[in-house]
Amino acid sequence: MLKVNELNVSYKEIRAVRNVSLSVERGEIVSLIGTNGAGKTSVLRTLSGIIKPESGSIIYNGEDITGLDAHETVKRGIVQVPEGRQVFSTMTVRENLLLGAYLVKDKKLNKKRIEEIENMFPILSERKNMLAGKLSGGEQQMLVIGRALMSGGELILLDEPSLGLAPKVVEEIFNIIIKLKQMGKTILLVEQHAQEAIDISDKVYVMETGEIKKAGNATTIGDSEDIRSIYLGADKTT
């Protein structure tokens, strides 16, 4: 579904991503793990067209989408749930959802999707007229996932969905991710909670200083010693 070849990205004159190649198949959960500043967010933002790559190619459903603007990639079904949630805090929950469907002009379809999403996250229905800035962190995370679903996108780029949330809520978020997969969505996940991410993933890429250091399925990566010590060990102490 998504194929990235030899991607290089510089951000503020620093090479943030070097020769990154990865692939995501339809219906998979693929996670990208690594320490802070490893370049994971840069990869996601390049895929969604917020930043432009220096070289390399991004092929989505057989089409070369390298360097397209965000409104073009969203149109093609790639939708990002940004790090730090990024709700529209001065707008209502309902307006936030509608903005997710900004490029969908079919009003009936939007109505239907809102219903589906509110079924999935009843809290969003209860608070539909509340300003998004007033929601709790967990609720905001649900809102931005719901907002992404509104676009009808097939490939969801999830950037640190558990960041800054209480452990109980983190668990809930991971359950939601599994639910998304069951709905038929494809997910590329960037996470600090490496163990949980590996557990639900079909494929895992490990990034370090802009490069992919290791790739494999959940069992091979989860068992490998150095990964355990670097990422998972650190995880357990925190």
């Binding site: 939708v79 529209f88 001065t90 900004y102």
Partner: peptide, 20 residues
């Protein structure tokens, strides 16, 4: 109008929504 308010509120998130 919705798009204008979205950009004013959070221009990065507005980009993610596919707002041109």
């Amino acid at each position: 109008g919705l798009a204008m308010r979205a950009i004013k509120d959070n221009s990065l998130a507005a980009d993610f929504m596919g707002i041109n």
